[in-house]
């Protein structure tokens, strides 16, 4: 393909990738920032979102758009509740000790993944696109649904930004993120906030899953790769920064598309991973600045 159309194609593909990735990474970053814990099970909440979408859409017959809209409504709630429950049952009792939390979320990762294997089964299962329109862009075709994914992600990101910056809830989150002890002294119920944030982080990832399933199919092993990419995005974008996360997601999403084609997909991943290592080593005090580790 000629360079011009090729760049257009790679940018479009990269934007779809970046749209979903920024949602997943944003969920991770929220939990990372406010609760100061690493949620290794984040990718599995994404996967859970995908398989529940499949269930919802196979439950609803008729126009696939109805099932899709229903999923968009129901799936984040179910996934969010699951996360709230696991925080309430497990993480709360560990007092969010960084080491114990990482180990426990690895445990949650395996439990969710294997639970999916038991109930959903080992096969990849497709979900029909809510509308099946192929746009012919002369040099190549592109699915209209993919534009819809980009568009929805932008709307969602704007909504999240509004909530974070303009509402009282957002203020509470920012206060907790800045200094949880002082926030507590001012009467913010920290443990409730943590509980909600953990659920919210998973729910945002689940929205990403609902959007991507009509393109990529649901599979019980699909949580691993987005988790690593989300880590990369969050670390490169800077912790707790919405703009940074989105910018990093676009960078990673685009470069994956472009480097994969010119060189090899593994090289794209190796480079991104190396970049993370460099960022972390240059900031030797750790992700959480100088406050604590």
């Amino acid at each position: 393909m000629e360079l011009g159309p090729y760049l257009l194609f790679a940018s479009l593909e990269g934007l779809v990738h970046a749209a979903v990735l920024s949602l997943i990474a944003l969920g991770l970053s929220l939990v990372f920032g406010v609760m100061r814990i690493v949620n290794v099970a984040h990718g599995e909440f994404f996967m859970l979102g995908a398989i529940i979408t499949w269930w919802v859409s196979s439950f609803v017959s008729g126009n696939p758009a109805i099932g899709f809209l229903l999923a968009l409504l129901v799936v984040p709630i179910i996934v969010g509740m699951t996360a709230v429950l696991s925080d309430w049952l497990i993480l709360r009792h560990l007092k969010y000790d960084p080491e114990a939390t990482i180990i426990a979320t690895i445990g949650i990762l395996y439990i969710i993944q294997q639970f999916a294997l038991m109930t959903f089964g080992p096969d990849a299962k497709p979900v029909e696109q809510p509308f099946n329109i192929r746009l012919d862009l002369y040099w190549f075709g592109f699915s209209a649904y993919k534009f819809f994914v980009i568009f929805s992600a932008i709307i969602l990101l704007l909504a999240i930004w509004l909530v974070m910056s303009k509402t009282k809830f957002g203020l509470i989150l920012r206060a907790t993120q800045l200094d949880s002890e002082t926030a507590q002294a001012f009467g913010i119920p920290i443990s409730r906030v943590y509980n909600i944030v953990f659920g919210l982080g998973a729910a945002i990832a689940a929205v990403g899953a609902v959007l991507i399933v009509p393109i990529q199919q649901a599979h019980y092993l699909m949580g691993g790769e987005p988790l690593l990419l989300a880590f990369i995005v969050v670390i490169i974008g800077g912790l707790g920064s919405l703009k940074g996360t989105v910018a990093a997601a676009i960078l990673i999403g685009m470069s994956d598309g472009i480097i994969s084609v010119f060189f090899s997909p593994n090289i794209a991943k190796i480079l991104a991973t190396l970049l993370v290592v460099v960022v972390l080593i240059i900031k030797p005090n750790g992700l959480f600045g100088t406050t604590k580790t």
Binding site: V38, P98, F231, V276, I281, L287
Partner: peptide
């Protein structure tokens, strides 16, 4: 050069 959570993530990476 890193500590705590960063050390875990760097080794993972």
């Amino acid at each position: 050069r890193t500590i705590g959570v960063s050390f875990m993530i760097v080794t993972l990476m």
